Computed example of a mutant assay.
Amino acid sequence: MTHHLPRRGPDMTTTGLDLTAFTGTYTIDPSHSQIGFVARHAMVTKVRGAFNDFTGTVVFDGANPEATAVTVTIQAASVDTRNAQRDEHLRGNDFFAMQEHPEITFVSTGLRITGEDTFDLVGDLTVKGVTNQVTIPFTYQGSATDPFGNQRLGFEGSVAINRKDYGVTWNAALETGGFLVSDKIVLEFEISAIRNA
């Protein structure tokens, strides 16, 4: 059964699903979640990658959804683009400088409900020691109780950022014009969160 987030009326009262049923603290399940990224390579193709090591929590108050608090910590060294040489380059000073900045973090500062099952999550993204505010549109995928009795909530979202805004400036010019790696990077989130006992 699919639940929808409530619509916000002009008087800012909620209608629809009783969100108080979802009030609680949730842990992001890394084995059933993915934090990935897409970059354009050599102007002609896309390279997809993911971070394999991350943790996160969601504190949700159904009576006050806007106060939702989300924190995510990603280990930069866990970057995986299915190419060992490229991954080593990404871990180095040209890109993530992981020895100085081993973690990429996101800390939410607000949430806005935008539709029946959509919301914008606003927060501070820190990459390579540089923090910028981002707004990530998410779609609520539903709630289910898994075979082990865990209540799970599912979300998907994505946002485009400019890597240069985070001091990740390395590039190589192409003989045909343009550059090897796009400045625009799309971050993709597929999240399964388990309600804490």
Rank of each mutant, 00 (worst) to 15 (best):
F138C: 03
D11Y: 10
I194C: 11
Y166I: 07
V47Y: 02
E88M: 01
G16Q: 11
A160F: 06
V72D: 00
L187H: 06
A84T: 12
T71M: 07
Q75G: 07
Q99F: 00
F60E: 10
G24T: 11
F119L: 15
D94N: 09
V79G: 03
E116A: 12
V127S: 01
R7E: 03
G9A: 12
P147G: 13
R152W: 14
M98Q: 11
P147I: 13
D11P: 00
S78L: 08
L187W: 11
D87G: 05
E116H: 06
D146K: 15
P10K: 02
V168I: 14
L121W: 08
H89G: 00
F189G: 01
T131A: 12
P65V: 10
N162C: 01
A42P: 02
L153G: 13
T131D: 06
E66N: 07
F179T: 08
D183R: 05
L5V: 09
A69P: 02
I136Y: 03
K184E: 13
G36N: 05
T169W: 01
G92H: 02
F148C: 07
V122R: 05
A76E: 05
T27I: 14
D117N: 15
E116M: 02
T2L: 12
L111P: 02
P102I: 07
T25D: 13
R7C: 00
Q133Y: 00
Y140K: 09
A76W: 05
G123H: 07
K128W: 12
T126W: 10
T2F: 11
D61C: 06
N93Q: 06
N196D: 15
T55K: 08
L5A: 07
D87V: 05
S78Y: 03
N196Q: 15
A193W: 04
T139S: 14
R152E: 14
G123K: 03
D11N: 10
D146G: 14
V107M: 04
I136P: 02
G123T: 07
K164F: 10
K46E: 15
D117S: 15
F179Y: 12
T109L: 08
T176R: 09
T169E: 11
H3S: 11
I74Q: 09
T105G: 05
M98Y: 01
D120S: 08
Q141K: 15
T73S: 14
W170L: 02
A63G: 15
I136A: 04
H3P: 01
Q75P: 01
W170E: 04
S108V: 12
E100C: 02
F22V: 06
E100M: 08
G142D: 12
T57C: 11
F37I: 10
R82Y: 12
